[in-house]
Simulated scan of single mutants.
Amino acid sequence: MKTEQLQAIVVFDIDGVVRDVGGSYRRAIADTVEQFTDGSFRPTMENIDELKSEGIWNNDWEASQELIYRYQESQGKAREAISIGYEKIVDFFQGRYRGSDPHNFDGYITNEPLLMSAKYLEHLSQNNIGWGFFSGATRGSAEYILKQRLGLQKPILVAMKDAPGKPNPTGLFDVVRQILQGDNSQVSVIYVGDTVADMQTVIAASQEQPNTNWIGVGVLPPHAQNNLEQQEKYQEKLKNSGAAIVLNNVEKLNYDLITSLL
């Protein structure tokens, strides 16, 4: 596809958008916090959502550590007195999420339901919509879902360690540049995510590059759709953080809806 034919660019977050991580990443967070609080505290989905709504805990290792700290503080311990090595937290988390085999994933990651199909992405390409991925997941985890599960050959991806974490928009800019292949055309960009940090990334992008039309689209992850009250609360947080629209599934962002947003 020639870049001058692009009508728009859509960049997707992965966790909660492309795959359901309620039983994987979030389960690993809960396991990790429970492990390092000696079984005294296991955070609920609501606890994790509340933390992530602060917009600065996109890294799930850091989110796990923060939940551990906050629990210990609630028990009267000073944060400075809590001696839990970050690497130990990461290793335990990865053991649950990726599994015990360093060469082949055999952990929670293997059971993540897909929320997007390759056919949906083909539909975007056929309608001259460029697409790529910007995620806080590790490259190994992101490529596993994109290449092995979705069957994509060479997806444009910026993952953890490729760019600063969200809401810094550098990774989003990198994806757009790769899609445009050096073309400086002004194309509207939609970023699709499921967290406050994702929407804040769009706001930051619009502030740094005001000549581009940046649009945030929120997606409700499956765990936030268990009941109407929870769904409305989660939706409100995304809209208050800058989402132009909030969908309950990423594939509802079809060509017609994309053109209406532009």
Score class of each variant (00 low, 15 high):
2 K>W: 12
3 T>I: 02
3 T>F: 10
5 Q>W: 13
10 V>H: 06
13 D>F: 08
14 I>L: 08
21 V>C: 11
25 Y>A: 13
26 R>E: 09
28 A>F: 06
28 A>R: 13
32 T>W: 09
32 T>L: 06
35 Q>I: 06
44 T>I: 11
44 T>M: 15
44 T>R: 13
46 E>D: 15
46 E>H: 15
48 I>E: 13
48 I>R: 09
50 E>K: 13
52 K>A: 13
57 W>N: 13
59 N>A: 01
61 W>Q: 03
61 W>M: 02
61 W>S: 02
63 A>S: 14
63 A>D: 13
65 Q>L: 15
65 Q>D: 09
65 Q>S: 11
66 E>P: 14
66 E>H: 14
68 I>V: 12
69 Y>I: 13
69 Y>H: 14
69 Y>Q: 05
71 Y>C: 03
76 G>F: 12
78 A>D: 11
78 A>G: 02
81 A>P: 01
82 I>T: 07
83 S>A: 10
85 G>A: 13
85 G>H: 15
86 Y>V: 02
87 E>A: 14
94 Q>K: 15
97 Y>S: 11
99 G>I: 09
103 H>Y: 05
103 H>P: 06
104 N>H: 10
104 N>R: 13
106 D>Q: 09
106 D>L: 04
106 D>P: 05
107 G>D: 04
110 T>S: 06
111 N>W: 03
111 N>L: 04
112 E>I: 03
114 L>T: 02
114 L>M: 04
115 L>P: 12
115 L>A: 08
120 Y>Q: 01
120 Y>W: 01
120 Y>N: 00
124 L>W: 01
124 L>G: 01
127 N>M: 00
129 I>R: 00
130 G>P: 03
137 A>I: 00
138 T>C: 00
142 A>E: 08
153 Q>K: 11
153 Q>A: 09
154 K>V: 01
154 K>M: 00
157 L>M: 00
157 L>P: 00
160 M>Q: 01
161 K>H: 01
162 D>N: 00
164 P>N: 00
167 P>F: 02
167 P>I: 03
167 P>Q: 02
168 N>C: 02
169 P>E: 04
172 L>C: 02
172 L>S: 04
173 F>L: 07
174 D>S: 06
175 V>L: 04
175 V>T: 04
175 V>Q: 01
176 V>I: 05
179 I>C: 07
180 L>S: 14
180 L>T: 03
182 G>S: 06
182 G>A: 06
183 D>A: 07
186 Q>F: 15
187 V>Y: 07
188 S>H: 08
189 V>P: 09
191 Y>K: 14
193 G>M: 12
197 A>L: 14
197 A>G: 14
202 V>M: 14
204 A>N: 12
206 S>R: 11
207 Q>F: 08
212 T>Q: 15
213 N>R: 14
216 G>Y: 05
220 L>T: 12
221 P>G: 02
224 A>H: 03
226 N>M: 03
228 L>Q: 04
230 Q>S: 04
238 L>E: 05
242 G>T: 04
244 A>M: 07
245 I>K: 10
247 L>T: 08
248 N>K: 12
250 V>D: 08
252 K>A: 04
253 L>T: 08
260 S>K: 07
261 L>P: 03
